[in-house]
């Protein structure tokens, strides 16, 4: 129990010694994984990449209540930006291009989205996702490699040292840590508040001074940037970028991550990405049955935990807070 004496304490992301301990342990765990369990380095890296997309999608869907079935599109833009540009202008510069491109495209998609809601917006955004996929598949082959896609050589991007899978893992870890930190900050800031306000009572938000169009398009842009950075990190991880990876199914998977993890919280997105990535990794061995098993597990989680994994975590936390009473 921490007694708060100053309002500044309310604004700390990590408030208690236990919180700091948990934070330090988490970071330590992620740092050590490639050393202790090298076999898990790839799925864990994939989980970190996906968690960025899930966080971004959650900002849009969970916070502002705008649904998207087109996030594979933003993910693809980020991935292609790195695949195509990183060999020419270096990886950090290509990452920056991915961020700017996704922010602009996200903002532009957000404008027509102002007029659409629920299922209509879902279909419209899925159209966007498909259009992006088709764009990369059908432009001349010397642009983005057409249906075959582009090969991404890590050694070419990072030199021999970072080309090793383990080293690239740490690049992902660093970027994801920064982005997660910023997401937690955003969520509890006045902008995160305005996102939720627009979702819960648009009229009241407006009369309180929130510019609805501005805040909704901002949410789209930020969400797209998170997905885009995810894509940018994904390209070297996989080593190949091809249109078939960015199908509607991937967008649906992103959406299932936030539903499973918990709608409307940053932590929910991370937990959901972890659950879905782990499931797929484990079920891949089940061969033809993997799709069926995956569906079953998702169904069971949703029946037992309609609020998602994060909802369960909050219940456990509440229970221990008042333990042993």
């Amino acid at each position: 129990m921490v007694l708060k004496e100053r309002y500044e304490q309310d604004l700390r992301l990590v408030g208690s010694p236990q919180g700091w301990a948990a934070f330090a342990l988490t970071i330590l765990l992620f740092v050590l994984i490639p050393q202790i369990f090298p076999a898990y380095a790839y799925p864990v890296a994939l989980f970190m990449v996906y968690s960025l997309v899930a966080i971004g999608l959650n900002i849009l869907v969970g916070f502002t209540g705008q649904i998207s079935l087109g996030h594979a599109g933003f993910f693809a833009i980020g991935a292609y930006a790195v695949a195509k540009l990183a060999p020419i202008i270096t990886f950090p510069a290509a990452l920056l291009v991915a961020v700017v491109a996704c922010a602009v495209v996200g903002y532009l998609v957000g404008i027509p989205a102002l007029k659409l809601e629920g299922p209509y917006l879902a279909i419209a955004t899925s159209g966007f996702g498909l259009a992006i996929q088709q764009f990369f598949a059908n432009t001349p082959n010397d642009w983005f490699g057409g249906h075959g896609g582009l090969i991404v050589e890590k050694s070419q991007l990072f030199g021999d040292f970072f080309a090793r899978d383990r080293a690239y893992y740490y690049i992902i870890l660093a970027v994801v840590t920064v982005m997660v930190y910023m997401a937690f900050n955003l969520a509890r800031s006045h902008i995160g508040r305005a996102f939720v306000a627009v979702r819960d009572a648009e009229l009241a938000a407006q009369t309180s001074g929130v510019n609805i169009a501005k805040i909704k398009t901002l949410a789209f842009a930020i969400s797209a940037v998170y997905a885009g950075i995810g894509g940018a990190l994904f390209a070297p991880l996989l080593g190949i970028v091809s249109p078939e990876s960015f199908s509607l199914l991937l967008s649906v998977q992103f959406l299932s991550m936030i539903v499973i993890g918990g709608i409307g919280t940053v932590a929910g997105g991370i937990l959901g990405a972890g659950m879905v990535t782990a499931l797929q990794d484990q079920l891949a061995q089940a061969g033809g049955w993997s799709g069926l098993l995956y569906g079953l597990v998702v169904l069971i989680v949703m029946i037992l935990e309609p609020l998602g994994l994060y909802g369960r975590w909050m219940k456990i936390k509440l229970y221990w807070k008042s333990w042993p009473f």
């Binding site: 508040r193 305005a194 939720v196 306000a197 009229l203 009241a204 938000a205 309180s208």
Partner: peptide, 17 residues
């Protein structure tokens, strides 16, 4: 017309937007 997902404090903070 309140922001149901926000706390009382957060609702008031939005009034300061």
């Amino acid at each position: 017309e309140l922001f149901g997902g926000l706390t009382v404090l957060e609702n008031l903070l939005l009034g300061r937007h």
